[in-house]
């Protein structure tokens, strides 16, 4: 450090950093600067930033709590909705079952009535058919008797009406 030059004008030959004549100046202004920064931070910036951060943390916590509450409410509402839906569904099923039962009853009635009518008609028809059949048998029997009597007469055989009728009845069975 032999060639170290005092004063700034010839400092190019030495390292300006080792020019001790400027040290008091730099140190003085550095201390002023640091103190100024410290007071700006201490008085204004740090409380403000800390306040903002705390406020934000508070807001976030509050918001999360509110959200939690709202979520619970939403869950409650959902449960109520589900319950209402289930109730409505049960009601609808009940109504449907009632209607079905009613319709079934009416249907059964109508079917029974129709069955009765059909049965009545069928019995009537059966009776008529029996009548007609009986009528037809009698007529055939009479015609057969007559025809047998005629045939027997024509053949010269003697036969009473009762014999003929018995014979005819015998044949008709077979």
């Amino acid at each position: 450090m032999a060639t170290e030059t005092p004063g700034g004008e010839e400092a190019a030959t030495g390292l300006p950093q080792l020019d001790f004549s400027t040290f008091p100046n730099q140190i003085f202004w550095l201390v002023v600067t640091l103190v100024a920064i410290y007071f700006i931070l201490q008085r204004v910036a740090l409380p403000r930033i800390a306040g903002v951060l705390a406020e934000r943390a508070g807001t976030i916590t509050n918001d999360i709590a509110t959200a939690e509450e709202l979520k619970l409410k939403a869950q409650e509402a959902e449960a109520a909705y589900d319950k209402a839906l289930a109730d409505a569904r049960a009601e609808a099923q009940r109504i449907a079952a009632e209607a079905r039962a009613e319709i079934q009853g009416e249907l059964d009635d109508a079917l029974a009535k129709a069955d009765a009518q059909i049965a009545a008609k069928a019995a009537e028809s059966e009776a008529k058919i029996a009548d007609i059949r009986a009528g037809a048998l009698d007529a055939i029997r009479a015609v057969s008797n007559d025809a047998a009597a005629e045939i027997a007469g024509a053949m010269g055989a003697e036969a009473s009406a009762d014999e003929i009728a018995a014979a005819v009845a015998e044949r008709m069975k077979g």
Binding site: E4, T13, G14
Partner: peptide, 8 residues
Amino acid sequence: ALLLMFAV
């Protein structure tokens, strides 16, 4: 190095 260059 700097000291040797500039300060010695």
